[in-house]
Design a protein around this nucleic acid. Structure first.
Lengths: 352, 352
DNA sequence: GTGAAAGCGCTAACAA
DNA sequence: TTGTTAGCGCTTTCAC
């Protein structure tokens, strides 16, 4: 009773649909749909005819219609703090690869750490009918989840699975976390093996869960090695270049300077490197510098930076696979872990 | 004849639709739709009642259904070379802001410079029903557009507008380009004003259009100032750290060393800085270093880097506004330009 | 100003 | 194995 008669638009050739394919193949639309979805038997000869036409027209089903019909959009929303941060960029790229491999697409949003925007985006993604949401960074990093945020997340999670590298208190979500204890241990044992015992921590806030875990590990390891904890060796701050720069300045002003710095990420390590260089000191001879994330920033600094890598490819795949499985209501572990690795470069061992 | 009887899923509370709103407001679904789309008159009292319910349930229409119905997805596809490159990240973030402001979402894809993948993604985005495609980097950078790519782009452009910062030969698309001549001029005049006349170019390939334009400007400006062109002062390469590092090594080996380097982007500038630093030379006293893009990398290097900024906010807005306008078949200029600005830092003026 | 009804392109339950 | 039909949730004529 419908199905176009004439070309609706003389310029834009009308997009072809399964009805067109069906008609030309002399079958019903459902048969075409069957070969498209692969989960039903179709007589081989018809199947071939249909597949030939699909190829001929380079036909791909309209995703909106498909999504509306089977209530699955094949879209995964990624809510990140700021894609310009190379850590998030690395995770996103890894997620995209995994998503495409699984026939999914990525809808990307940045919260810029603004709580209101973050909650709004959660809504937006849901209304966009994403099948699942992957949230990396933002409120999910809080040691104690913000109340309003938890409320909104709970509401969303009731219909759309949320996967995160952090956590959301009292909200059922899927977690794929980096083992921060292991990461911190790798860095500290590395420094200790180089006979550096005056180790300082620069950057990061202790109300961020991964930072807190690293801090706890730091204290434990010092204790294990019988090294006294000095609170002036812990300089909290943001996660950017200036945090590192400001932090190292404070440390250099101490009577007893540290001989090794653990920066909270490569960004702040850049600031640390600048501060040390400007002070006319040598890295690593006078002070070794190491950090977390192993982004490409490690290659830009002089000397190159020792850092902790997370195998982003695997990390992204776990996030996406979990998101997809959860959206399909398959059973998936609610907590998975990513193992960190140490990558040694010139900033701690003297080679470049 | 349809419209759910019971809860279809006991856990997931069913998403509410305009039918629910209509029923509770005692009006027809079309009336609800009218207040949603704002382009029809509805009696104020009904309107208020409906709006109250929309608010009460935090209702937002299902985007898939809406897109299917009015054949507009409110999605803009961004096809970028690699989001991990801070230049692309900056553009994407700016685009996202502009898109959200206009009620659109971003579908992000990375081509990683692979031609096949790039063409596939063009297809993918179209089948995803994006209203327009913004392509930044990739084949659109070619001085002479790849033949296969042009063919595919032409096919896509017939139904979905393509906006790019580059160009696609013989394919009607919208261009928002950076004025590379102006950018190169700013950098060169800056160096010349500092009495640096032995200027070398590092990184980038001359078959990339923006790089080629910068090269041409370089030759013109030298000529204007009566400075002889030396071909050994032009070291082509990729766009990464190593391109800069390899490039500066060659230049430092020359009998007559340059006293200023124009790197093709901040990335390669990082390699240049490393090379100079390792050689025990000072920046900018011995050699000044400047580059293009003004990404945050400029802040990480020691000394900080003089670079060319593009006002990413405006750039992104122009790209997105053009994409939206074109998808609405409004008339938009097919060629727009973004004006570059010089940001001077320690790598060329001695202050940090 | 408003409701009924058809249609966007696809899937899936039901018959045959 | 295959076709018919209803339905996904929304917009948009077309009458009234």
């Amino acid at each position: 009773m419908r199905r176009y008669g004439i070309m609706p638009d003389k310029n834009n050739q009308r997009k072809i649909t399964i009805y067109d394919i069906a008609k030309e193949a002399g079958v019903s639309p459902s048969t075409v749909s069957r070969v498209l979805t692969k989960n039903a038997n179709v007589r081989p000869e018809k199947k071939e005819r249909i597949e030939a036409l699909i190829k001929k027209y380079n036909f791909k089903p309209n995703v909106l219609a498909k999504g509306l019909s089977d209530t699955r959009s094949k879209l995964i929303g990624i809510l990140t703090a700021d894609i310009r941060n190379p850590f998030y960029a690395a995770v996103c790229v890894a997620c995209e690869s995994a998503a495409i491999a699984g026939g999914y697409r990525i809808l990307l949003c940045n919260s810029f750490g603004e709580k209101e925007r973050e909650m709004e985006l959660l809504d937006t993604l849901t209304h966009q009918q994403v099948d699942a949401i992957i949230q990396i960074g933002g409120r999910v990093d809080d040691v104690i989840t913000d109340f309003d945020y938890a409320k909104k997340a709970k509401q969303i999670a009731a219909s759309t699975p949320i996967v995160t590298n952090g956590k959301i208190d009292s909200v059922p979500c899927y977690r794929v976390t980096i083992d921060a204890y292991a990461a911190a241990t790798l860095l500290l044992e590395h420094l200790l093996s180089l006979k550096r015992e005056k180790i300082a921590l620069v950057g990061g806030r202790l109300d961020v869960i991964s930072t807190y875990e690293k801090y706890v590990t730091y204290r434990n390891i010092l204790k294990q090695h019988g090294i006294a904890f000095k609170k002036e060796y812990v300089v909290e701050g943001r996660y950017d270049h200036d945090a590192g720069y400001d932090g190292i300045k404070k440390l250099l002003a101490l009577k007893e300077r540290p001989n090794a710095i653990v920066a909270i990420n490569d960004f702040s390590a850049a600031g640390v490197v600048r501060g040390i260089t400007e002070a006319g000191l040598r890295i690593p001879e006078d002070i070794a510098v190491v950090s977390y994330d192993n982004t490409y920033i490690t290659d830009l600094l002089v000397p190159k930076l020792t850092s902790i890598d997370y195998d982003y490819q695997t990390f992204g795949k776990k996030l996406v696979d979990t998101a997809i499985a959860a959206s399909l209501k398959k059973s998936v572990p609610t907590l998975q872990t990513v193992t960190p690795h140490l990558v040694v470069r010139g900033s701690s061992n003297g080679k470049k």
